[in-house]
Design a protein around this nucleic acid. Sequence first.
DNA 1: ACGGGTTGTGCAACTAGTTGCACAACAGCA
DNA 2: TGCTGTTGTGCAACTAGTTGCACAACCCGT
Lengths: 182, 182
Amino acid sequence: MSLPHAILTALLERPSSGLDLTRRFDRSIGYFWSATHQQIYRELGKLESAGHIRALPAQAPARGQKKAYEVLPAGRAELARWTAAAQDPKPHRDAMLLRLRAAAVVGTAGLEADLRRHLDLHRRQLAEYEEIEKRDFPPGDDSAQARLQHLVLRAGIELETFWTQWLTQAVEELPVVEDGTA
Amino acid sequence: MSLPHAILTALLERPSSGLDLTRRFDRSIGYFWSATHQQIYRELGKLESAGHIRALPAQAPARGQKKAYEVLPAGRAELARWTAAAQDPKPHRDAMLLRLRAAAVVGTAGLEADLRRHLDLHRRQLAEYEEIEKRDFPPGDDSAQARLQHLVLRAGIELETFWTQWLTQAVEELPVVEDGTA
DNA sequence: ACGGGTTGTGCAACTAGTTGCACAACAGCA
DNA sequence: TGCTGTTGTGCAACTAGTTGCACAACCCGT
């Protein structure tokens, strides 16, 4: 229910083509709302026929491509409505936690390698976020917009920090649980 | 791809009927892998025809109900296989973070109430986890099984702690961003 | 000028998850 | 003893997300 709103947000920040959007979903926006290019193209189609966005007339003759979209007033209104509307948090699903719990019953054999791999992935992600923070939020800029955006980035940083710490601990004290077959 | 494995884990911990499972998914297991009773019944059907579980013969004549299922060796093997297999972390989707980002463009009007509501929800969840920790993991029990389960619960506690802190900060310093319509 | 990689756009089919309903059995009570 | 609410089980339809492919255009080396 919120991919269209993610796209509207991105397009308001800057009008873009499908591919531009795809790229931006692979960094910034995608850090907390991921989407593939297929999803994005499909959704762009729907948003256009709903009258929420429109294709910018291509200035370069545009050999074959549709190119950039921009948000129409109706789209902005819809986004504002959605932002203000109460929403229940979606239930979480975390396969790694589930696997730990399963391992308590069927044994921890083979788990450690993947735990370490995940730890590494989270460390990288954390480093990337910290890089962005250093680059885009130097101390002192406290425009309202920047403060909000920084707040979102901080959430990412702190979540990744949590995961690296938790996984480190998990690897360290992974108890060897034997397969509990009776 | 992991609902069946969540069910296998739950059934290994204790053979249960569909309704029992539903209840357990509303607490413990569901904290990191939620499912509705409809999903569960459907999945039980599949697992049974796959030969991973079987219905226990009802000892009380069981007026109408199918009652409890137990895991067969093939099911346990499948669960062990899945637990050990490498899996990429699924991309996150967090609507609240997205809304904050949208608010930076279309304005923060109406957002604060829901932010507070979420804060309250996370506080409750945290309290519940801490209750469970006090009840089920008194200091001193360090069987391998208990250590693993405690580790999973700690993840829940720390995540909820993070969210309550983050939301508190968000509410406090919610900058008033005007609707940026040109 | 042509063959092979890369970029940009998109459809179709499938899988997972959600929502909405159906309905039997029993429990309590009026 | 029939009405009403609750418990337990389940199907069907819909929505969202993923996977896999297609295909045109351009760019680059030979």
